[in-house]
Computed example of a mutant assay.
Amino acid sequence: MAVTIKLLSTALFLLVCAVGVTLAVNRCPDCDSTAVPYPLSTGPACGDQNYKIRCDAGSLIFDTLNNSYPITSIDRLNQRLVIRPASLVPNTCITTDLPFHGVQLNSSLPFNITGSNTIMFLNCTEGILQSPLDCSPTGLCHVYVNETSRMSACEAAPICCTFKAGGGATAYAIRARETGCRAYTSFVNLPKNLPVSQWPEPGMEFQWVSPLEPICSTQADCDGNSTCGTDPNSNGIRRCFCNSGLLWDPIQGVCAASGFGSNLFS
């Protein structure tokens, strides 16, 4: 078995050399035991600087405009990550990030909130009832509050609403505020009709836009499969563009032969 694996590994290496695939970027080192896939960047010398996250005491952290949240998982092939949303202040129905107005992303950066999130607004004022959200007494939000012991403080706050995030006003923000809803929670890919006892832990999913080719100053910044040239879609920025016959693979961060691409090292 070991010999077979070794032969397969050798064959894969030779195939890679034959098609001319070369790493064009530096992937950041693991954060403790968690891999940091390209283009995510935990330092100035690795990843893409538009995709910054932090490695803090062995844990990955995502910084929003005004707060920070732990990253619980990363799906590099689908270019998504999940954060743990803020918890409630003990014995209240107020989220701990209320002073920061909830989750607010920088819309100029390549991250946005996906439509895979089921959001529940809690402890809301009556003004929320004018929205198109599901705020009915039998809605999913009320079911969750009534069947979850840690949400008992929210039972005294009668208005809570449920909706699917993504697009429009929720692409870059899930707001908590005194004049709207003072708390929220979120679940990723929540199956319909699943008992609350079987729900996953709260999470909020972000996706990132595919990165462009690496920025360069001179040809020395690029590898042998790419050429440093001016980006026609930017103001004077230069990038390592793949040579003829190769295509930029934004998932692996390589110039790869057409059709070879992202699944090589999956």
Rank of each mutant, 00 (worst) to 15 (best):
G58F: 01
N67R: 12
Q104M: 15
L60E: 01
A18G: 11
R76T: 12
Q104T: 13
Q79F: 07
D48R: 01
L81C: 11
P44W: 04
D75M: 11
V36K: 00
L98R: 01
K52M: 12
T42P: 03
N50L: 11
V82F: 04
N26V: 13
P39K: 05
R84Q: 11
C28R: 01
R54S: 00
N91A: 13
S33I: 14
N26A: 13
S87N: 12
R80V: 09
P29Q: 01
P29D: 03
L40D: 01
P39Y: 06
R80P: 09
G102W: 00
Y51L: 06
I61K: 10
Y69T: 10
V89P: 06
Y69I: 07
I94V: 15
Q49T: 11
Y38A: 06
A57C: 08
F62H: 08
D75Q: 12
P99F: 03
D56Q: 09
L81R: 03
T95A: 15
F100M: 15
R84A: 14
L105C: 08
R54T: 03
N50R: 13
T34E: 08
A24I: 06
P70L: 04
S73C: 08
V25E: 04
N91S: 15
S59L: 07
Y38C: 03
V21G: 13
I83L: 09
A24H: 04
T96K: 14
D75L: 08
Y69G: 06
P44T: 05
V36R: 01
D56V: 08
S41N: 07
L98T: 05
